[in-house]
Structure formats: C-alpha cells, structure tokens
Simulated assay, not measured.
Amino acid sequence: MPIQAEGVIRKLADPFDYGSAHMNPDRAVDPGLVYDIDPMEYTKFFNCTLGPKDDCSSYMGKLYQLNLTSIAPNLRNSVTVWRTVTNVGPLRATYQGAVEAPAGVNMAVNPSVINFKKGSTSATFKVTFTARHRIQGCYTFGSLTWFDGRNHSARIPIAVRTVIQDFVADIA
C-alpha cells in the first residue's frame, strides 16, 4: 500500500514527507563532492528578508540561489540556478551529471561533466529548468546526481512547482 503523509488531510506521501536518507558512515567519511556554503551567505539572506537593503537584489524571493543541497524553485517559464561543488576526494577526478527531470519540466545541466585537476577544488555549474506545460501545478520531483565512475556519488533532490498566477494562499 502506498505511504501516506501524516496530517489532517490525508494524501499520498511525496519527497517532502519522506525521511532524508539511509546513513552510511563509511561513505560519509569520503563523500567525494560537497555543496559548501559560507555561513555569511545565510546571514546575508536572513538580513535581506528582515528589511531589503541595496545589496539584497540577488536574494529577494530567490532562496533557491543559495548553495544548498537541494533545488526548489517556482517555475513560470524558465529558471536558471547556480551551484558550486567542492571536491574533497581524489585530487584528480571527473564527475558526470545524471539528471532525473521532474515531470512536465525540461532540465539541463551545464557543464554536464566536471573535471578536477591537481590544484582545482571547486566547480560551478548551472541547472536550467523550463516548463513544458503552462499549467498551475503542484510540486513535481526529480534529482541531479554527480558520479565519478568509481565509488563517489553526490545526489541532490529537485522540487519544482509550475506557477502561472500567484494566489494569496501561495504567498501569504
């Protein structure tokens, strides 16, 4: 029987309702890639939500631009999101991106291959989402996984909601 979410209104569970992951301590010690973020980015974002300032234009309404280990934008037509990964594995490594696009959304990663050579420890990539259908929708889910072809993989969940019109209930 399908898993149901807890709450007053019963619904089928989705990735927002599931647990995070199965913990594997051996793999956690050697993750290969991490999505590192300077704590000052969180402070800046928080301060911008309290009262917009001159340097807040890149953050207002765009939490999805923080270098988090997930991506969850609202999608009208097209959205581009940037992420930076840090190589904490072997000095020389090549990672191939594998995309599982959310239903009704085209998803492209550029570059789709990241090469780390001796001396380079971080790489920035962009993910572009384009709505295939102009329908006010619910969240659909996918993922982006970076594989090095050996024993490292770094997966982040994707949650996209197609939005045609803002409703008071959506933004209050």
Rank of each mutant, 00 (worst) to 15 (best):
V127Y: 05
N67E: 04
V113K: 06
V79Y: 01
R150W: 08
N67I: 06
K11S: 10
I71A: 03
F167G: 09
R27I: 07
F116V: 03
V127F: 01
K118C: 04
S20F: 14
G7V: 03
V8A: 09
I71M: 13
P31L: 07
R161K: 15
M1Q: 12
D54E: 15
R155V: 06
M107T: 06
F116R: 02
M60I: 15
M60Q: 14
C48G: 05
Q96N: 14
A28K: 05
A169G: 09
V160A: 01
I156S: 02
R27N: 05
G142L: 10
E6Y: 10
T84Q: 09
I135W: 06
R132T: 15
A154K: 08
P73L: 05
S120R: 07
F45A: 10
P157F: 02
I9C: 09
T121C: 09
T94R: 15
Y95C: 03
N115C: 00
F46K: 07
V163S: 06
G149Y: 10
P52V: 12
R83G: 03
E41D: 14
Q165S: 13
Y95L: 01
A108C: 07
V34W: 02
G19A: 14
Q4G: 08
E100A: 14
G7L: 04
C56H: 00
L91S: 15
I9A: 13
W146V: 00
A13R: 02
Y64Q: 10
V8F: 08
M23A: 10
R83M: 02
I171V: 15
S153A: 12
A103T: 07
S112N: 11
H133I: 10
V8W: 09
S143M: 03
V127S: 00
A101L: 01
D14E: 12
S58M: 05
P90Y: 08
P25T: 03
K118W: 08
R27T: 12
A123Q: 08
A131N: 07
D54V: 14
Y139M: 07
F167W: 13
R155A: 09
N87T: 00
I135S: 08
T43N: 10
S122N: 13
S57Q: 14
V29W: 12
R132D: 12
T145Q: 07
N110P: 05
N151Q: 12
M107E: 01
S58E: 12
A21F: 14
G32Y: 01
I71R: 00
T128A: 13
N74S: 13
N74Y: 15
Q96P: 03
V85Q: 03
